[in-house]
Nucleic acid binder design. Sequence first.
DNA 1: AATAATATATGATATTTGTCATACACTTCG
DNA 2: CGAAGTGTATGACAAATATCATATATTATT
Lengths: 229, 229
Amino acid sequence: MSKCEQCIIRKFSSLRALNKEELIKISGCKTSKVVKKGEVLFEEGDYLNGVYCIRDGACKLTKLSANGKNHIVKFITKGDLLGQRSVISDESVNLSAVAVNDMEVCFIPRDEIMSSFKENSEFSVEVVRDICYDLKTSDDVTVNMAQKNVKQRLADSLLYLHDTFGEDAEGYIKIQLSREEIAGMVGTATESLIRMLSEFGKKGLIEVKGKRIKIVSILKIQNVSDGIV
Amino acid sequence: MSKCEQCIIRKFSSLRALNKEELIKISGCKTSKVVKKGEVLFEEGDYLNGVYCIRDGACKLTKLSANGKNHIVKFITKGDLLGQRSVISDESVNLSAVAVNDMEVCFIPRDEIMSSFKENSEFSVEVVRDICYDLKTSDDVTVNMAQKNVKQRLADSLLYLHDTFGEDAEGYIKIQLSREEIAGMVGTATESLIRMLSEFGKKGLIEVKGKRIKIVSILKIQNVSDGIV
DNA sequence: AATAATATATGATATTTGTCATACACTTCG
DNA sequence: CGAAGTGTATGACAAATATCATATATTATT
């Protein structure tokens, strides 16, 4: 079993604030596992008894909406921690987590996290800072969802994907989602999304090759997002 | 100056987890003030050096959207704490706070909050629990904003207002907002909102008298929110 | 390789929502 | 009291978006 003290991944999350003893203790009780693309880490309503540290791969956090569509709220990628909110507030998770590519994750039991949270104020401040950041972001997204039209929201989603996953050698965003999934991020009908994607393509904002999308001009997409025509 | 140890309001927020010494210390350095309806507590981008404890009245938290409209994200009312996110994560606030009726608030300096946060784990857990709850709620709202149509969102907003402010003797929701403000909660044009309000009125879901709104049937409004026609 | 299943694309049309114009109601303030 | 300003309401129309139908492409399965 790999040792947390030597794991670089922890440096990317609030786990960086843990001291050596804490890391050794966690090493002893954590479990590692592989999650294949499409597999479910947890579902809306589940209670987690620990947090996941994402060593590789990514998952989507989704919520089933009132009208039966799966909305992708955000993606969790390599280096991120998953499930802190639920563990700390001792509530069920409100989102489902599904792998969007093959993942490698470590599971750290609840008790370890909570004891560090209570005893190591540097760690607790870090954790809270993360959650606060998420809250701020979520409020911003709420406003965008409420006030922007579908075209603007698609621009936002493309920028978010680009930001989160980066580009491959050819400049394509390093994640492949179905049109239905993207529609579920934007909050629109799949057909509408497809039309808008090809519109963006025709206008030279993006290049589409199957499921792969390349942003031609970040600036132009940003202008669309800001409603600058 | 009133004493925090004797103040009942603190029982409604995470401040309930503070011990007597902490409360006495806060009593000595807190300031109280009255904020008149329409006055601004802080604006998007400000740095707060403390948190507000709302002793009476309410304020709206708004954000200016890309298209220039003021979106009301939520209301903060009697008993709530305001500004913890910004203080703990040491970032500027992302929302503006404007009184929607006359308020009485106490201001607790940053240092007091942070020292209790670091030393009193019961308090820090409470604070984080609150922020986690807000995060969960915010994600839920995001999904609703993205997936529901204007009619459903209006139903949600009415239920939220009813929940947050309660009813007066005649059954009207105990807050008076302009049509423009409600439109800014729902994320729609003011004219569309006005039309929909009168549609709700004609269908007997609500009763409207000037700025005062009465929900006739919570159940029916809930059905609208759920898209059950 | 052929077939089935699924995803993507596009047209036609209905519905929803936004915009602009205008009218009316209500407040405020000199 | 009356004028000016603001908020609310409504009609007419335009634009955005959803829905349904269907075609075509892509992937999976045998």
